[in-house]
Amino acid sequence: MAVPDSLTAWREFVARRNIEPEHLTTDQLAAMTADEKDLYDESRFAWLGADIVIETKDLATIDRQVRIIRARLAAQRSTAGRTLALTGRAGVGKSTIAMLMGKRHEKAVRDKLDSSTPAESIAPVVYLVVPPASTPKMLMRAIARWIGMQVPRGWDAATILDRTVAVLHELKTSMVIVDEVHNLRTNRAAGADAASTLKALTERLDAAIIYCGIDLLNSDLLAGEMGRQIRARTKVYDIRTYSYGGAADRELWAELVAGMEALLPLAEHVPGTLDTPEMSDYLWNRTGGSIGSLRNLLGDAAIEAIFDSTEKITRPGLDAVILDQEAVRGQAAYSTTPQKAPTKSAKASKSEVG
Results as ranks from 00 to 15, higher is better:
252 L>C: 01
12 E>D: 14
197 T>W: 01
33 T>F: 02
213 G>M: 04
318 L>K: 07
49 G>C: 13
112 K>W: 00
5 D>F: 06
282 Y>K: 11
105 H>T: 04
87 T>H: 02
344 K>D: 14
51 D>P: 15
208 A>P: 02
20 E>V: 02
222 L>M: 12
104 R>L: 14
233 R>N: 07
219 S>E: 08
151 V>I: 13
117 T>P: 02
322 I>H: 05
193 D>G: 09
297 L>C: 07
63 D>S: 14
161 L>V: 00
151 V>Q: 10
295 R>S: 14
290 S>G: 06
163 R>S: 15
238 D>R: 04
81 G>P: 12
246 G>S: 13
78 S>H: 05
266 L>V: 01
152 P>A: 05
97 I>M: 15
81 G>W: 04
26 T>D: 06
174 S>L: 10
265 P>I: 01
168 L>R: 06
212 C>L: 03
57 K>P: 13
167 V>H: 12
222 L>W: 07
40 Y>M: 07
235 K>L: 15
236 V>Q: 07
333 A>F: 03
349 S>P: 08
198 L>Y: 04
111 D>S: 15
47 W>G: 13
147 I>Q: 10
278 E>T: 04
295 R>G: 14
180 E>S: 12
11 R>A: 10
276 T>W: 03
174 S>I: 09
268 E>V: 01
312 K>A: 11
232 A>M: 08
134 S>N: 05
142 A>I: 07
343 T>I: 13
295 R>K: 15
91 G>D: 10
21 P>N: 03
207 A>V: 08
144 A>L: 09
62 I>D: 02
244 Y>L: 01
103 K>Y: 01
220 D>N: 10
33 T>A: 01
199 K>P: 11
331 Q>T: 03
266 L>P: 04
93 G>Q: 06
253 W>Y: 09
269 H>G: 06
244 Y>S: 09
58 D>W: 10
175 M>V: 05
107 K>P: 03
242 Y>V: 01
142 A>D: 11
